[in-house]
């Protein structure tokens, strides 16, 4: 007996997580408490997402893990290896070939399909937490659908900055009932929350699981005179030339030179493979 149970977790833990996922799907956007386990990685490294993925994976799945859109960062590589070792599932970097995608802070650029599941790693699941620190109070606010405070916060953004300056973890209302933190995805990704795939959210340290079923209405909170805007850096990608993808800004030297590149590495790579070029793709400096 030197092997792990399939997908690391013991069966009773998986049953507990699975029951939470089902209740989360039945009440979209509501945060279901669950007995989060210690995982062989620190809190803040995706323990919630890992537990949700472990309870969801079957041996037939192909897993993709991204961290801020990238497949090749430490967090993504370690989680991919973790499931290669403990579940024996296939892994991929290609969005189209994945059946389960675990993500930290991005939604892939490629449109997800009915056959895919997107698992988010969530640091702070409670959208009202920075406005009201007491769990007893935020729970009551959700039960009474009392979300005025969130609008006050967005209004204060406007009064201080002239626009809603919240740029990530932008609050949404799910299916006309629960205000939900979509995890710290850029607000550029918010319109993609209405998708064909099942979305599951896992917060390990905070011990919450929530979900958004496919084709569920997800509305970014805003005002009539200050409507929601999905913003991104106003540049094309310097490697693949894409004008419609979310970009990372990379500082190149001490002289202030910088470049913008797609945060979704698989999207950028596949575009370059198709022959698309950006401002810096010919210089050979990258």
């Amino acid at each position: 007996m030197n092997e792990y149970n399939f997908a690391y977790l013991d069966e009773q833990t998986k049953r507990m997580i699975r029951r939470a996922i089902l209740k989360g799907l039945a009440v979209p956007g509501y945060q279901v408490p669950f007995a989060s386990r210690e995982m062989p990685m620190p809190y803040g490294w995706g323990t919630g997402g890992v537990q949700v993925s472990a309870a969801t994976l079957t041996p037939d799945d192909t897993l993709k893990v991204i961290d801020q859109g990238a497949d090749d960062t430490t967090n993504a590589v370690s989680i991919r290896k973790f499931f290669e070792n403990t579940a024996g599932v296939e892994t991929t970097e290609e969005t189209e070939n994945a059946t389960v995608i675990q993500t930290r802070h991005r939604i892939p650029e490629a449109k997800l399909t009915e056959d895919q599941i997107l698992v988010y790693q969530v640091p702070i699941p409670e959208p009202l937490r920075f406005l009201e620190p007491r769990e007893t109070e935020t729970r009551k606010m959700h039960s009474l659908e009392e979300y005025g405070l969130m609008h006050v916060k967005l209004y204060e953004d406007i009064s201080q900055h002239g626009a809603i300056s919240t740029s990530y973890a932008y609050p949404v209302k799910v299916s006309g009932r629960y205000v939900m933190d979509p995890s710290p995805i850029p607000k550029f990704d918010n319109p993609k929350l209405e998708m064909d795939a099942i979305q599951l959210f896992g917060a390990g340290r905070e011990q919450r699981i929530y979900a958004v079923p496919p084709h569920t209405q997800v509305v970014s909170l805003d005002f009539e005179d200050y409507p929601f805007e999905a913003t991104k850096a106003d540049h094309p990608c310097d490697l693949c030339g894409a004008e419609d993808s979310y970009l990372d800004e990379v500082i190149m030297d001490d002289a202030g030179n910088r470049m913008f590149v797609c945060s979704d590495t698989d999207f950028c790579r596949s575009r370059r493979a198709q022959g698309h070029e950006g401002r810096l793709s010919k210089e050979g400096a990258i």
């Binding site: 149970n5 399939f6 997908a7 069966e11 998986k14 049953r15 699975r18 996922i21 089902l22 799907l25 309870a55 969801t56 994976l57 079957t58 041996p59 099942i198």
Partner: peptide, 12 residues
């Protein structure tokens, strides 16, 4: 572990 994983995927 395997049978329950497939069964849960159907239920989910």
């Amino acid at each position: 572990p395997i049978d329950a994983a497939y069964a849960f995927r159907a239920a989910m």
